[in-house]
């Protein structure tokens, strides 16, 4: 497939860009899961990654904060604050503090709700009890979970419902005050009500965070995202404003995918 078959929106000002991949290629052994992706992730926006199963969305997302280290081999560059995240001098742990990730299956730690949030904070050197309390409350409020759990902060997080657990995972990530939040199908294990709550949470968060979300739920992508990237067989075939992508796709493949026409 040539570039002629792709449409990738570019931004004018560097100020608008939070993260940019250049010629990003990802291999599992010999298998090329992502071929030469050039994508600019806009700041303080929600970017949705859509595409068929196996098209490489998770692979792409996971390499943005180097969660693929040791699993896949990643070539090319990921630019963040004028740094190539793939270069040697990057401290991955400090970097992941800025670029957090939430996964498909909620994975609260087998600790109390409170400790779930403070655990990472303490590891990153925040030990002042007052600040910890503050951050816990803010994060839980931002994740729209505070009212449901404020009376049981010391209870085990494993007793939360799936939707609550997922919002706790988001709270846990935003308590670190990261720059960017990566989410891989965060709502796919949730019921419609939890999903709606989660979507609302994300929309509120975008004022402060750059969000990249992988989703199979096209209406969801249309509802919450500002920009959409369509992946097909390891290639970003189209990247554009969400409205444009869904209403007047530039590429035939995208048209087929968003209109559910797989003929």
């Amino acid at each position: 497939m040539t570039t002629g078959n792709c449409y990738i929106l570019k931004f004018d000002s560097k100020q608008e860009i939070a993260l940019e991949t250049k010629q990003l290629k990802i291999f599992y052994d010999e298998y090329e899961a992502i071929s030469a992706a050039d994508l600019q992730i806009p700041r303080f926006k929600i970017t949705a990654l859509i595409g068929a199963s196996g098209s490489g969305k998770s692979t792409f997302l996971r390499s943005l904060n180097r969660m693929n280290d040791g699993i896949a081999s990643v070539q090319g560059q990921i630019w963040y604050r004028d740094l190539d995240l793939n270069s040697r001098e990057i401290d991955v742990y400090a970097m992941r503090r800025q670029i957090g990730m939430v996964f498909q299956r909620p994975n609260p730690f087998p600790k109390s709700i409170y400790e779930n949030i403070t655990f990472a904070l303490e590891r990153h050197g925040i030990t002042d009890k007052k600040e910890l309390d503050e951050r816990v409350e803010t994060a839980l409020r931002q994740a729209a979970l505070w009212d449901e759990v404020k009376d049981k902060l010391n209870k085990s997080a494993l007793a939360l419902s799936g939707g609550q657990a997922q919002r706790l995972c988001i709270a846990r990530a935003i308590a670190l005050k990261p720059d960017i939040l990566l989410l891989d199908e965060p709502a796919s294990a949730l019921d419609p009500i939890s999903t709606a709550q989660l979507e609302e949470t994300l929309i509120n968060l975008k004022q402060q965070y750059t969000i990249v979300i992988v989703t199979h739920n096209l209406p969801q992508a249309a509802r919450i995202s500002d920009y959409t990237a369509h992946f097909s067989q390891g290639v970003v075939v189209e990247f554009n404003g969400t409205t444009e992508t869904f209403t007047q796709p530039k590429i035939a493949l995208t048209n087929e995918y968003v209109s559910g026409d797989f003929g």
């Binding site: 992941r96 730690f109 087998p110 590891r123």
Partner: peptide, 24 residues
Amino acid sequence: DQRNGGLALGISKWETVTKIILPA
């Protein structure tokens, strides 16, 4: 999932293992 959870928060693998996986 637990390991990923720890790593994604910028916690070292060592601390993820000794403080989350091991207790579990």
